[in-house]
Simulated scan of single mutants.
Amino acid sequence: MTRTISHRLVALLLLGLIPLVGLAHGISEEDRQRMLDGGYLQYVGLGASHMLTGYDHLLFLFGVVFFLTTFKDVAKFVTAFTVGHCITLVFATYFKITWNYYLVDAIIAASVIYKGFDNNGGFQRVFDMKSPNLLGAVFVFGLLHGFGLSTRLQQLPLGDDPAAMLGRILSFNVGVELGQIAALAAMVALLAAWRHRPSFKRFSYAANLALVYAGVYLLFTQLHGYQHDTAPDSFRIPVEEHRHVHDDMNIENTQDDSLNTLN
C-alpha cells in the first residue's frame, strides 16, 4: 500500500513538470532569418540546439536507455535509433517529402507513451504477451523521429542548389547527433548513479508512468495544435488568435441554432 502511494506521489510530482515539456521545439522566425546567410556551422549549431530542446526525442531516448546497464546495449539501441532518424531526416528533406508536423509530432508523442508503457511491463500485464522486439521498435520509431526533424528542417531556406542543400541537411544532421550524444551522456550518467540506490527500484515504475503521462500530454497538445492552428508555418497558435478561433466557432454554432429555430 505504501509503495503504491509513493509511486503515485512521485508520478504526480513529475507530472507537475510536464507543462515544461509542452514547450516543444520548433523553428522560430529568428532561426529562419539567421539561416538565410548561415553557413554549415550554423546548421550544425541549430541541429544540436534543436535536439537538446526536443523534449519528445529526449523523453523517448530516456525510456530506451532507462533499463540498459552496459555500454554495449546502450550503443546498440542508440545506433538503431540514430540510423533510423538519419535515413528519414536526410532523404525526406532532400526529396521534400513532408506532412503536417503536428500530426508527425503526435505520432512521436505516441512513441514516448509506448516506451513508458513497455518499460512498466504493460504488454505482459495488459495484453498477456511479450513485448515486441525492442531493437526493431526503436529503429521504426527512429524513422518517425527523423521524419519529425525533417518537417522542421524543411521550414528553413535550404536553397535550390542540390549540393548546397545536401550540405546543409548533413550539417543539421551532424548537429542533431552531437546534441544527442551530449544528452545521452547526461542521461546514462544520471541513471548509472541512480541505479545503485535503493530508490531506483522503488520509483522506476513511477518514473516510467510519468513518461506515459508526458507522452499523453504531448499527444493532446499536438492534436489540439492540428485542429486550431491557422498558420501552417507556425508552431504555436498565438493566445489571442486561439481565442478568436473559439469565438468564431461559437458564432457559427449560434447561427446554426438560430436557423434551426426558424425552421
Results as ranks from 00 to 15, higher is better:
64 V>M: 09
40 Y>A: 14
173 N>W: 00
136 G>H: 12
212 V>K: 01
233 D>H: 10
118 D>H: 02
257 D>L: 13
263 N>V: 11
196 H>D: 10
73 D>S: 09
55 Y>C: 04
2 T>V: 07
182 A>H: 00
213 Y>T: 11
117 F>H: 00
49 S>M: 14
218 L>P: 03
72 K>V: 06
83 V>C: 09
135 L>V: 07
211 L>Y: 06
155 Q>R: 13
117 F>N: 02
134 L>R: 10
240 E>G: 06
183 A>T: 03
92 A>G: 05
245 V>Q: 14
220 F>E: 09
206 A>V: 05
148 G>S: 13
200 F>M: 14
122 G>V: 01
58 L>E: 05
249 M>K: 12
14 L>V: 11
116 G>Y: 00
111 S>V: 07
32 R>K: 15
249 M>L: 15
116 G>S: 12
76 K>C: 07
94 Y>H: 06
63 G>R: 06
27 I>W: 01
128 D>I: 03
87 I>Q: 04
136 G>Y: 11
257 D>P: 06
59 L>D: 05
114 Y>I: 01
96 K>V: 13
101 Y>G: 11
190 L>I: 14
215 G>I: 03
25 H>T: 12
123 F>A: 01
106 A>H: 08
219 L>Y: 03
4 T>Q: 12
250 N>M: 15
215 G>T: 02
160 D>W: 04
15 L>P: 02
63 G>W: 01
252 E>F: 09
262 L>V: 08
194 W>K: 09
243 R>W: 14
46 L>Y: 04
171 S>Y: 02
179 G>T: 00
251 I>M: 15
187 M>T: 03
26 G>P: 04
186 A>R: 01
233 D>F: 04
